[in-house]
Each structure stands twice: as structure tokens, then as C-alpha cells.
């Protein structure tokens, strides 16, 4: 046990992960061969359009989505040395909280309307850390302070509907942090919030992660949220990672046409007035009928016959010797950047 933990340098190691749902309408490969790893204190952004499989990936990593009658998970996820999908339900639950925790998208629905804030926070503390009622209560107040909720003693007795959206998301974050997880997965943590609150929540998450040296996965369709707040970024399309590297590198020099198009579709403050915003044409792929070749090919400006027939593998594309990898037969060269 100790030996195993010593060897695991990475908090998270995901290898060749597949999540396949059998639905009445067909087989859906929501996650299709994903590999990634994360060290303590490192932040990974996972970006992609709706339906690209990013949320399913997050939930499969925690083990919330696991093998059952209609779901098949293969490959491996190791969190802190534990092979999540090889564990029993019960053993997995013991990791949810102390090892890995999740922040969900909508704080309006991810808190139970009939439970007080205090119950939300203390129940996990009492379950995992075996704290008594009073200790758990003290600890919960402390957690609320850490997420900068004013007047925490009063907030403890309130119900979720008495809090604003931003406050609720802070409670959700406090709930996730309760048992000091080594890995935090934030699944679109700001999508349901007001724009003015989004930045506060993202900054709070970043501050807490670095304070606690916690590995963080930030799942988002908002590239602006990921830029500057993550060390690395992985772009997902059709259930696969199509490009991944250091965040700065991907943003400066995307090699996959999808990543490039995604970046080009963010409006920039520096843009000249009346600049036409470039949107990506077409719709995200139907996950039930993914094409044989590159799943982006039908929407890609550069696609050739080869793209439609042969699935590109992840490989080093840009600067040799870096970790910048992409899955494209005809990667964009740095030159493209200057031309555009």
C-alpha cells in the first residue's frame, strides 16, 4: 500500500478510458480512448462544445459513472494509486470526499432544498472523518470562511433557497473541499452563474487549489475561463482529446483545426470594431453515429479524403520535445498563426 503510493507521482492517471452507453437509439461512445495525468497542485482545463463528452469524462474519472447494465467503462483511472473502476462500490465511496470531490454545474439544483447549509457540510465530515456533531459544525463554519462566505454562523442555519447563486456555489465548493480531496473536478462550475460572479468563483477555485496543493480539473466550454487559470488544457471533440499541452502553448499556437477554430470564436477586447466573429460552422457530431475518420472532418476547412477515412492518433505535432500533442493528419503550422 505505502509502496504503491510512493510510486504514484501523479495524483491522477487515466489510461485509454472508454465510456460507452447503450441507449435505445444506439451505442454512444461518450468517452473514446482518453489518457491524461495530473500532479498535485496542477490544474487541467478540459474544453469542448456541449456533447463533446467532457462531463461524462469527469464523472467517469470519479467513478460516479461506472459499469452497469447500460454503461460500459474500460481502461483505467487511478486516483492516488487506487484503481477506481476496479474497486467495489463501497470502497469507491470511501474515496469520494477524501481523495476526489466534484463541484457541479448548477448550484441551484446541486444543493438539497430541504437541507440546511450545515447539514450539507457536516454530513460528509462526520461520515469520512468521523467527527462528532460539534467538531463537524466548527469545521463547517471554518470551511464557509475559507470560501469567503460572510457571516458563516448565520449561513449555517439557512436553506439553499435563502442564498444567492454565487453563495450557493461557494457552499458547493466548501462541500467538495470538506474532506481535503487530493483531486477536485469542477464540472462547468460557473455556467449557471451571473457573469459578474463567474470570475469570483473561478478565482476562488484557483486560489484554493494552489493553497491546498490540490490537483484540479476544470471542465468548461468557456475558453476564457480556462485561459490563465490552468496549467494545461485538453481540447475534447467527439469523446476524444484532440489536442493537449500547456495552456499558454495551446492558446498561442493551436495545431488542431478544431482548437484553432474554437479559439478564433472567442471575441477579444483587442479586436478592431466590427470584426466579424468567426463561428465554427456545422453542428457538434452526433455521438451515436460518429464518422469513421476524424470526427471533426465534416466541419473542417482543411479536410481531405484521408481525414474522412482514417482516424488520426494523438502525436507530437508542433514543437518537438514538448508535451504538445494533437490528433490531426494535417496539423496547423505556427505559420498559420501569423497569416491569420
Amino acid at each position: 500500500m505505502g509502496h504503491e503510493e510512493c510510486q504514484a507521482v501523479n495524483i491522477l492517471e487515466v489510461n485509454d478510458l472508454h465510456t460507452v452507453f447503450t441507449t435505445p437509439r444506439g451505442v454512444m461512445r461518450a468517452v473514446d480512448g482518453v489518457a491524461l495525468s495530473l500532479r498535485a497542485g496542477e490544474t487541467l482545463g478540459i474544453v469542448g462544445e456541449s456533447g463533446s463528452g467532457k462531463s461524462v469524462l469527469g464523472r467517469t474519472i470519479t467513478g460516479l459513472i461506472a459499469d452497469n447494465a447500460t454503461t460500459s467503462v474500460s481502461g483505467s483511472v487511478r486516483i492516488g494509486g487506487h484503481d477506481i473502476h476496479a474497486l467495489t462500490q463501497k470502497a469507491r465511496r470511501r474515496l469520494w470526499g477524501p481523495e476526489v470531490a466534484m463541484v457541479f454545474q448548477d448550484p441551484m439544483t446541486s444543493l438539497n432544498p430541504v437541507k440546511r447549509v450545515s447539514t450539507h457540510l457536516t454530513e460528509a465530515l462526520r461520515l469520512h472523518l468521523g467527527l462528532g456533531r460539534k467538531d463537524a459544525y466548527e469545521r463547517a463554519i471554518d470551511l464557509l470562511r475559507q470560501v469567503f462566505i460572510p457571516d458563516p454562523t448565520r449561513r449555517m442555519t439557512q436553506y439553499p433557497h435563502e442564498l444567492s447563486g454565487g453563495m450557493r456555489q461557494r457552499v458547493v465548493i466548501a462541500m467538495a473541499l470538506a474532506c481535503d480531496p487530493k483531486l477536485l473536478i469542477a464540472d462547468e462550475p460557473t455556467t449557471a452563474l451571473d457573469v459578474t460572479v463567474q470570475r469570483q468563483i473561478l478565482d476562488l477555485l484557483a486560489a484554493l487549489a494552489s493553497e491546498r496543493n490540490m490537483a484540479t480539473i476544470l471542465i468548461s466550454h468557456d475558453l476564457g475561463a480556462v485561459e490563465g487559470r490552468t496549467d494545461r488544457v485538453a481540447v475534447m471533440y467527439g469523446g476524444r482529446i484532440v489536442e493537449t499541452s500547456d495552456t499558454a502553448r495551446v492558446f498561442a499556437n493551436p495545431v488542431h483545426p478544431y482548437a484553432e477554430a474554437l479559439l478564433a470564436s472567442i471575441p477579444r477586447i483587442g479586436d478592431a470594431p466590427h470584426t466579424v466573429l468567426r463561428a465554427i460552422e456545422g453542428a457538434p457530431p452526433n455521438m451515436l453515429t460518429l464518422p469513421t475518420g476524424c470526427s471533426f472532418a465534416p466541419r473542417c476547412r482543411f479536410a481531405t479524403d484521408r481525414c474522412h477515412e482514417e482516424q488520426p492518433e494523438l502525436r507530437e505535432l508542433a514543437d518537438k520535445g514538448t508535451t504538445h500533442v494533437g490528433a490531426c493528419h494535417f496539423p496547423l503550422l505556427p505559420v498559420h498563426q501569423e497569416v491569420s
Binding site: 460516479l64 465511496r93 470511501r94 469520494w96 448548477d106 439544483t109 462541500m175 470538506a178
Partner: peptide
């Protein structure tokens, strides 16, 4: 099917 049930599961509640 509510999100808060998923959130409770993610906390490791039996």
C-alpha cells in the same frame, strides 16, 4: 434524478 442526489453520492454517502 435530481442533481443534489448526484452531489450527495459524490460526497460518498451510502
Amino acid at each position: 434524478k435530481e442533481d443534489y442526489i448526484l452531489a450527495a453520492r459524490a460526497k460518498g454517502m451510502p
